[in-house]
Simulated assay, not measured.
Amino acid sequence: MTVAISHSPEVQAFFAKAAGVGNDQGNPRLKQIVLRILQDSAKLIEDLAISDDEFWTAVDYLNRLGSRNEAGLLMAGLGLEHFLDLLSDARDSQAGHTGGTPRTIEGPLYVAGAPLCEGEARLDDGRDPGQPMLLEGQVLDLAGQPLAGAIVDVWHANTQGLYSYFDSGQSAYNLRRRIVTDAQGRYRAYSIVPSGYGCPADGPTQACLDQLGRHGQRPAHIHFFISAPGYRHLTTQINLAGDAYLWDDFAHATRDGLVGEVERLEGGVARVVFDFCLQPAAHADDEQRSQRPRAMQTA
């Protein structure tokens, strides 16, 4: 027989006190959120008959997740980061904001302050003997007109699936640059073809995925922030065509309209052409990237 007490007045009052509701100190918004977490957690414990051992195993898992800095990775793997995109899409549709390049997840590996370059940039430091890549395209408005002076903030992994700053073996800002588009809205980057990668095999995210019967692999991909005065900031990424995990991305980031075709040029160079189309900003806040915590906040 299921015993349920979480909705009793006594327990509800207890949770309200634990969340600081009723005192005039602290943050009212946080109190509201914490109270809901307590209420919903208690209902889950009751509804699924969570044992004490299961509860404390979950607490231990959260400790391990934090110690490995993998909370962001798990949010992507469980689809919650993708859900935020779907919710934003629905809100945009309701508000009449349509068209343009689709958004998709940022992921946890952005680093602010990459060198700013005019028109074109070399992304790699020449130490990784990967396949050369030419990445180019335009930034446009909804009418297809080029946006001069837009900023293409681009970052991607090396051939080992590792990112600078998070991998001590790479130079500062390797495979990270900000490129200002030219008068025709064009950007160009010389780099190496990134590798897909998986969650750390010994980490808590992969341990969770194992229990769910899922892999933790990502296809080769390239991240972007695209911004221009008067236009909505775009957070997106392109996954490279031909990758075995293109439509089976553990992070659920692949979307229609975000697949980069790879053209093989003479000399073994891989050419990827991708244009970005921005929506006009309704207000100044639309032009800004999210204020989520990141590794560095120098720009």
Results as ranks from 00 to 15, higher is better:
T181P: 03
R177F: 06
H156I: 07
D167Y: 07
D182I: 09
W155N: 06
N158C: 03
T159F: 01
N174H: 15
T159C: 11
S171P: 00
I179M: 00
S164C: 15
R186M: 09
G169L: 04
H156D: 09
H156P: 07
T181F: 06
S168W: 06
G185K: 03
Q170A: 05
F166P: 09
G161R: 03
N158L: 01
N158A: 05
Y165Q: 14
Y173M: 12
Q160S: 12
R176M: 13
Q160K: 11
S171V: 07
G169Q: 10
Q160L: 12
Y173C: 06
Y165K: 12
V180W: 08
G169D: 07
S164F: 09
A172D: 15
Q160E: 12
L175I: 04
D182L: 05
T181E: 09
S168I: 06
R176I: 02
R186N: 10
D167G: 04
V180S: 14
G169V: 00
I179C: 01
G169H: 02
S168K: 11
R186C: 12
H156W: 11
A183P: 05
D167T: 08
W155A: 07
G169P: 00
R178Q: 11
T181S: 11
R177L: 07
L162Q: 15
L162E: 13
I179Q: 01
S171Y: 01
N174V: 06
Q170L: 15
D182S: 06
G169R: 07
R176E: 07
S171R: 11
A172L: 15
R177G: 04
S164T: 13
S168P: 07
H156K: 08
R178H: 03
L175Q: 11
S168D: 14
L175H: 10
R177C: 09
L175S: 03
H156Y: 10
Q160G: 11
